[in-house]
Design a protein around this nucleic acid. Structure first.
Lengths: 352, 352
DNA sequence: CTGAAAGCGCTTACAG
DNA sequence: CTGAAAGCGCTTACAG
């Protein structure tokens, strides 16, 4: 009875019509439901004539397959799981661009992104385990991946598809995308050397963070390649105040640097602040280059030169690599993407 | 055969065991699958003894119901749809905290957040239509809601559950959460008046934006309540340069203001910049208060006082209100949340 | 190339 | 309180 009502609604083109099912399409096209399914999922198996009729019927009924049914029958969820980092975590991840590019690219592959958050009292892997058991996602995107990440080990053990933003130490290979931090700081050094600087210095985090150590490495290598003297590296925790203190230390040195590169913009803001306090003009008297190009860097005074991570590209790559796994290409690859040095006034000023 | 293998794996407690189904649990507990389902979804219908046996069996097998099956049989997806704003859109929305609180709160209600992005060439409502037809979500959270938002009309027409972050003009009532911007700017005014300021001014956006007009309204009302003279309001587009220009205009006025409130932090950064350029000390010579408390405001020089929107609370409220609709409470309510004035040096300096 | 049928793993009346 | 059965809307071998 309800069905008849529904069909009437559909035929009158009533926009409030209940949704139509594959059964409705098959009836209208005069074929079996299996053929409708094939028309959508394997059109090459269907004759051109039939395909046309099915598609026309589907169009008229505004048919869209039920995800739950597709999912149950096809044993895939069409969902990519992503656990949000805790907001108070210091992260250089700009979620907006990252999530948007993931979601946009996923939809090109008939996938969507499902978010979840760590629950209090859970282990690092519990949320992932749970989603696997519920067959709620087809694969995961990991971010904020640590050196020895339990999630990587779990997913490798399970043989469950995933890609990671960030490398991790694992004896087994897995798919990751990472930013070539060393290339970023090296680009900063080359830029500064070109501008005539000879006495460089770096403000970095304490040793032991993969990301930070990578950035220091690139800095040191580029300084060496430019045949400059060994530069001082001050190591502090993240923060504007810490950047200030580090700058004070560096600027008090006998042969004080004329250019400072930092591993994060907030440190660079501190460096600029300390320089200004000493009556130096940032840009002219002291060049400063940060890392991550946070949203405020362009608005700072002077605007801060910074190394920008290409989050759009990263999100896209992660999805592509996950899709490759889902489609069974079997290729576990990894990609190191080059960040981009955004040059602004803080490293320009007068040429030396 | 595969089933026997699977059961063996389960019994040996092999962690790599394939997932178990409701059938496995029912067998182990010696009850029917319907009873297992009831044990989970309506425990009051099941005897205590049976409940215990079922739960123990489920625990042993690490059973978790398949979402696809639950979804198909129960006609709900357990998913909340949220379309990401385009990253280049100027928005005062801090996605991190907002999404995290939504995801965390959703999981408390057996829901998850599904992200999608606008596809090129689509209308504003296409993505929502599509997800409804695919039965892919149980409801939507809208943000960046406009005055006359086509999405609101669509969802009301369809009778599909949704909540909106931001009010909109609609003849029909619907569920929304919004920030009381007027209360925020009024709090800024009271703070400044307490500090002894008598000549206030505002830098606002051009008339016609709901959010901006609201913030201006609160400012004007509070100034009037303090019995101060009519304050100048300069209207410019968003941006640091625009803030600079607006400040220049205000500071050139005969009775130049000693305190400036802006509708957005980026404008406030411009105001601070212009003040500094003129040799004024921000805080002491000119008090500045922004709006939105963007991540950099605390790091600015001096740190910027700003009105902060409680995104955690907003995300939580949105989910709660959507859940009420999903559970058929039928109550369409709305909430105006008070933002919080975060006082920093930019509005302190010496007491007047 | 097409159709009939089984099956995915649950929920939900309905009997008993 | 419990079980048997139908059904959700698809996909996927398998015949023909």
């Amino acid at each position: 009875l309800l069905k008849r009502f529904n069909e009437t609604l559909q035929e009158t083109g009533n926009p409030f019509a209940m949704r139509s099912t594959i059964r409705d399409v098959s009836r209208r096209a005069g074929v079996s439901v299996g053929t409708v399914s094939n028309a959508f999922n394997a059109p090459e198996r269907v004759s051109e004539d039939t395909l046309g009729r099915v598609m026309e019927a589907a169009r008229q009924l505004r048919y869209r397959p039920s995800r739950a049914a597709r999912s149950l029958a096809g044993r895939r969820s069409f969902l990519i799981g992503y656990r949000l980092p805790t907001p108070d975590t210091w992260g250089s991840l700009t979620l907006d661009a990252f999530l948007h590019s993931m979601a946009a690219d996923a939809s090109r592959h008939d996938l969507e992104v499902m978010l979840f958050a760590a629950r209090p009292g859970e282990t690092i892997t519990d949320g992932y385990e749970d989603l696997i058991r519920r067959e709620a996602v087809d694969g995961f995107v990991l971010s904020d991946t640590n050196y020895d990440d339990a999630r990587v080990e779990l997913l490798l053990d399970r043989g469950f598809p995933f890609v990671s933003f960030g490398r991790a130490a694992s004896t087994r290979p897995f798919a990751w995308v990472d930013v070539d931090g060393a290339a970023g700081t090296a680009a900063a050094v080359r830029h500064l050397v070109e501008r005539g600087h000879r006495r460089l210095a770096m403000v970095a985090w304490p040793e032991g963070s993969e990301v930070g150590d990578d950035r220091v490495r690139g800095f040191l290598r580029a300084v060496e390649e430019a045949a400059l003297p060994d530069p001082p590296v001050v190591r502090v925790e993240n923060g504007v105040d810490e950047g200030r203190a580090a700058a004070a230390e560096l600027l008090d040195l006998p042969g004080a640097p004329t250019a400072i590169v930092t591993v994060q913009d907030s440190l660079a803001f501190g460096v600029m602040s300390e320089a200004r306090r000493r009556g130096m003009e940032v840009g002219a008297d002291l060049a400063v280059v940060g890392f991550d190009d946070v949203s405020f860097s362009a608005l700072a005074e002077p605007p801060l030169s910074s190394v920008r991570q290409p989050f759009e590209e990263i999100g896209r790559l992660l999805v592509e690599m996950l899709v490759e796994q889902l489609e069974g290409a079997g290729s576990i690859r990894s990609e190191l993407v080059r960040p981009e040095l955004v040059v602004r006034e803080s490293s320009l000023g007068r040429q030396r």
